[in-house]
């Protein structure tokens, strides 16, 4: 099989400090998971030590679709990274 010349898209999840969930912060392109992890550290945390990062290939994520009223859709499920409340928005920016 001819390998794809394009780097796949990885979604990035960061736990900013202990006691918090990993939060989806964005995505990036990388040739492999190791590169994705290092690029994520450079881009989204500036190599802040003690920060935990997950990367997962975007195509490996299964997501519910809000307007299909999926019966399995629940914020406590494992497919919720796109749920708005899971994003890190500073509290003093209202109307988010």
């Amino acid at each position: 099989m001819e390998p794809s010349r394009e780097w796949p898209l990885y979604e990035v999840f960061v736990r900013g400090k202990r006691g918090l969930n990993h939060v989806h912060v964005g995505s990036l392109r990388a040739a492999d998971a190791e590169m994705a992890l290092r690029n994520a550290r450079d881009l989204y945390t500036r190599r802040n030590e003690g920060v935990s990062i997950w990367v997962v290939e975007a195509k490996a994520i299964t997501a519910s679709s809000p307007d299909e009223k999926d019966p399995f859709f629940a914020p406590s499920g494992d497919k919720v990274y796109r749920h708005p409340t899971f994003y890190d928005i500073p509290e003093n920016v209202p109307h988010m």
Binding site: G16, T45, R46, N48, P90, N92, V93, P94, H95
Partner: peptide
């Protein structure tokens, strides 16, 4: 949110260590 409030919110360094480069 008014424009000025938004600017104020952003100017506050509440989690700069996490995001800002340099």
């Amino acid at each position: 949110m008014s424009f000025d409030n938004a600017l104020g919110a952003i100017a506050e360094d509440n989690d700069e260590a996490r995001w800002a480069f340099g």
